[in-house]
């Protein structure tokens, strides 16, 4: 993937409140492809997206996005770079005091000086792309979870970004909404040539749309490659995650004292 990488992370170390979340992680995300980042809950997948977006700074290591070294960017440059990124938050993060239409129009109004009728055309086009042109006058509180995410998706592609990051797009969705999102992600990647990063722990959906995938656990990349390569990966840890076995290298039990001592059977207490 080397030279074709849109995002490349090298030896990134990040810790929060004393806990080391990434311990020298290296990862390349190719341009124009869908890359899935998977891993058990709590491994810092969302943190990874925030590092790429420059909302968090790593303790050490390099994060390059579109040729810019993100952690060293000045505020102004960082905000300029972010205009080329879109991010779909887990909760959708729509502005609750604005209607669906105004939500999608928000980035256009802030970053461009387009006339009102042009903004209207773009907004309706983006809403059409996610199939919600008819919902433009609703308020976010009137939308279902799946619709919220689709509106948020329309908003994050309003400025035609080069990169779009999805934070757990499938979490808590019913099968139909999930199917819609899978289709949208694939279509957007196709039609707009977007570089997509998908963070998820829904294995089948993620593997069905991604070109590349990587699995993170314990602050390290434990396996990466195409979906086929991953399915055939020799590592037990990878296999346990992909197949969802309850016990394996990732133990069922949270680390604890031995059973005998906790239940007072081992003699000396």
């Amino acid at each position: 993937m080397g030279s074709d990488a849109y995002i490349s992370l090298k030896d990134v170390v990040f810790s929060r409140s004393g806990r080391r979340i990434f311990d020298g992680i290296s990862l390349d995300i190719p341009r124009g492809k869908v890359t899935a980042v998977m891993g058990p809950s709590g491994t810092g997948k969302t943190t990874l997206l925030r590092l790429i977006g420059g909302q968090l700074k790593p303790d050490s290591g390099s994060i390059r996005v579109a040729g810019y070294e993100v952690p060293t960017l000045k505020r102004r440059e960082l905000y300029a770079l972010r205009e080329r990124m879109g991010m779909l938050f887990q909760s959708g993060a729509l502005f609750t005091d604005l209607s669906v239409y105004e939500n999608v129009a928000f980035p256009l109004r802030v970053h461009t000086r387009l006339p009102e009728d042009m903004i209207r055309d773009i907004v309706l086009m983006k809403l059409e792309a996610v199939g919600l042109r008819g919902a433009r006058d609703l308020m976010p509180s009137e939308l279902s979870g799946g619709m919220t995410r689709r509106v948020a998706l329309a908003r994050s592609i309003a400025l035609d970004p080069e990169l779009i990051m999805y934070d757990e797009p499938f979490a808590g969705q019913d099968p139909i909404a999930m199917g819609v999102l899978v289709k949208l992600i694939r279509d957007l990647n196709h039609s707009m040539g977007l570089t997509s990063v998908l963070v998820s722990h829904d294995v089948p959906e993620s593997l069905s749309i991604c070109h590349y995938a990587c699995i993170i656990a314990d602050g390290k990349v434990i396996g990466q490659g195409t979906p086929e390569e991953l399915q055939a990966h020799p590592s037990e840890q990878v296999q346990q995650f992909l197949q969802g076995q309850p016990d394996g290298p990732v133990p069922f039990h949270y680390p604890a004292r031995s059973t005998a001592r906790d239940f007072g059977l081992g003699g000396e207490a």
Partner: peptide, 22 residues
């Protein structure tokens, strides 16, 4: 606080809009 909890501030930041100003 609620805007922060529902990631609205965060998403604003990711859209290149400084929530402190906006």
């Amino acid at each position: 606080g609620l805007m922060k909890a529902t990631e609205q501030l965060s998403s604003m930041e990711m859209m290149g809009v400084d929530p402190l100003r906006r």
